[in-house]
């Protein structure tokens, strides 16, 4: 009698242990990192209709989706988001933010009004103007061509940025984990490199070389 109780207790205990072991197995998360995804070759850009003055309207309907080479997209965004006459280090920090923002959204496409796209051409995402690249911004993008700015484990996250205010370090943007565009120029004028600028605004991220 005692032996059977003991056996049942052992079986129950082993079952509970097995169950706990199964439940405690961590979920398999397919984190999208720079190691298991490659840099996009093409990005889908939704072109929104222009307002009556001829400017792309962030609230306008989507006219079509344009497939643009990823590098060209980044080069055509940077002069429309950063000022091409700014310091090279400010432009490099901007190029990195533009690239990682686009890379993240390439991995997270959206569907609106029947159009599936990665980004649009307005400030909803990043201001994009086809074939508007400039020599200075192209040089900045080429300088960070093989480098990514992601989490230390390589996870690709969205690098957000906002305009900020001129001649100011824009500390409040650092607190919000967004980069201030004017802040990049502020720090570049004071001799900071683009790595230091990125690390000032985005904490806990790493500069990684793309394989």
């Amino acid at each position: 009698m005692k032996r059977s109780r003991l056996r049942s207790a052992v079986l129950t205990l082993s079952f509970v242990v097995t169950l706990l072991g199964v439940l405690s197995v961590p979920k398999v998360q397919a984190a999208q990192t720079i190691w298991n995804t490659s840099e996009p070759s093409v990005i889908r850009v939704a072109i929104r209709e222009n307002n009556p003055s001829g400017e792309p309207d962030p609230r306008g309907r989507i006219v079509y989706v344009q497939s643009v080479p990823f590098i060209q997209y980044c080069e055509d965004v940077l002069p429309n988001e950063w000022m091409p006459s700014w310091r090279p280090e400010a432009l490099k920090a901007g190029a990195m933010a533009v690239k990682m923002f686009a890379w993240y959204h390439h991995l997270h496409p959206v569907t609106v009004d029947g159009f599936t796209f990665d980004v649009d051409n307005t400030t909803n995402f990043q201001t994009f103007q086809y074939m508007s690249d400039q020599p200075t911004t192209d040089a900045a993008f080429n300088a960070i061509r093989n480098i990514a700015f992601a989490m230390p484990n390589g996870e690709i996250i969205e690098l957000n940025y906002r305009a900020g205010i001129e001649n100011d370090p824009n500390w409040q943007y650092r607190n919000a984990q967004k980069m201030a565009q004017w802040g990049t120029q502020y720090w570049a004028e004071r001799g900071q490199t683009y790595t230091q600028i990125l690390q000032f605004y985005y904490q806990g991220r790493s500069l990684l070389r793309i394989q």
Binding site: M83, P84, S85, M131, S132, Q134, P135
Partner: peptide, 9 residues
């Protein structure tokens, strides 16, 4: 802009 080369299409 001042002091840089620029192009337009």
């Amino acid at each position: 802009h001042e002091n840089i080369r620029q192009q337009a299409t």
